[in-house]
Simulated scan of single mutants.
Amino acid sequence: MVTPAEIRAHLLAVRLAGVVGTSREVSLRRYRLFAARDPRVLIGIDPEGIWGQRELLALMAERCGVSADPRHTAGPDVIDPERTLAALDAFAGRLREVARRGAPVLFGTGHPRPLLGFYAGLADALSAAGCEVLTPAQGRCVDILTRFGLRTHRLDYVRGVALVRETDAGRPGCEPGAHSHSPLPVRVVLEAAAAGGGPLPELVVGDHGWACGAGQLGFEAIGLADTDDPALFVGEAEGVVSAVVPLDDGVRSSYYRPLTRYVLERACLSQ
């Protein structure tokens, strides 16, 4: 059994929480872009409320533990590990409920290199518990606007987790997948599931546009988010996203393994 104290120590030791790798400058810039309703930062969320920079900073201080002082403009950002632990428990609670019902689930990540293993462990456990892990639109192409222009990506699934790969990335299946904030992939996946007459997910688990895009369409969604991803926390505040875990989403993939074990134990899914 992994205790909260052990997870808290781990979060701080590998900088998943506490002082994290995301800079204050990057976070504040993204808050400004979100306040300006830049779609690259909204990542699928259509906010109902007025979210200016002041409101966003207050929200992120509340949900993540970042400094609420607008005069603090430089240096590393900070995540309160107690908030991470509380959110992990809420995250596990939603998994426990969907496992109890044996309901269909969808996993997707825009951060495949660090987070694929975390989601795959959850997908394996839910599948073993009788949930159908959905994989619609396998191989479908999606045009995503990137900083290099419009690029065609291909939807793929690895151990039940959806991701996108650039179509010109070389031999298929060799690269870990592309980093993406876009909500377009989850929209394509959900549309394909509906068109195929198959089951629709009762829970979508992911990050970036996977969680925000699904939540905005009315699907229950939970996810992980860093201090520079305000969209998920706004979605949570407005009831569009059910649970968001604040943590650094870009460290080594092995650092998330204890979190997988902790969440599965809390969800009563560990074997």
Results as ranks from 00 to 15, higher is better:
Cys131Met: 05
Tyr255Pro: 01
Thr109Asp: 12
Leu85Tyr: 11
Pro246Tyr: 09
Val204Met: 09
Val251Gly: 14
Pro176Gln: 12
Gly108His: 10
Ala267Gly: 11
Ala231Val: 08
Gly235Asp: 03
Arg113Asp: 10
Ala90Trp: 00
Leu88Asp: 10
Thr73His: 01
Arg40Cys: 00
Ser127Pro: 00
Pro172Leu: 09
Ala192Val: 06
Ala125Cys: 07
Leu259Asn: 02
Cys174Gln: 13
Asp80Pro: 04
Ala68Asn: 07
Ala103Tyr: 05
Tyr256Asp: 11
Gly102Asp: 08
Met60Glu: 08
Tyr256Leu: 10
Val241Asn: 12
Gly102Cys: 07
His153Pro: 02
Pro201Arg: 08
Pro4Thr: 07
Gly149Trp: 07
Asp229His: 12
Leu264Glu: 08
Pro246Arg: 13
His181Asp: 12
Tyr119Val: 01
Leu155Met: 12
His10Asp: 08
Arg113His: 10
Ala221Leu: 11
Cys131Val: 03
Phe219Arg: 03
Gly93Cys: 09
Gly170Phe: 04
Asp46His: 14
Arg165Trp: 03
Val188Thr: 15
Asp156Pro: 00
Asp249Pro: 03
Val98Cys: 05
Ser180Tyr: 00
Phe233His: 04
Asp38Gly: 00
Leu122Gln: 01
Arg147Lys: 13
Ile43Phe: 01
Leu163Ile: 08
Ala36Glu: 15
Arg54Gln: 12
Gln271Pro: 15
Ile45Pro: 05
Arg32Gln: 15
Val41Pro: 00
Leu122Ser: 00
Arg140Leu: 13
Arg261Pro: 00
Leu106Ile: 11
Thr146Glu: 10
Ser254Glu: 15
Arg71Ala: 14
Glu55Cys: 01
Gln216Lys: 13
Ala237Asn: 02
Asp69Ser: 10
Leu259Cys: 07
Pro76Met: 12
Pro172Asp: 09
Gly121Arg: 08
Glu97Leu: 12
Arg15Ala: 14
Leu145Thr: 13
Gln53Ser: 04
Glu62Ile: 03
Val2Ala: 13
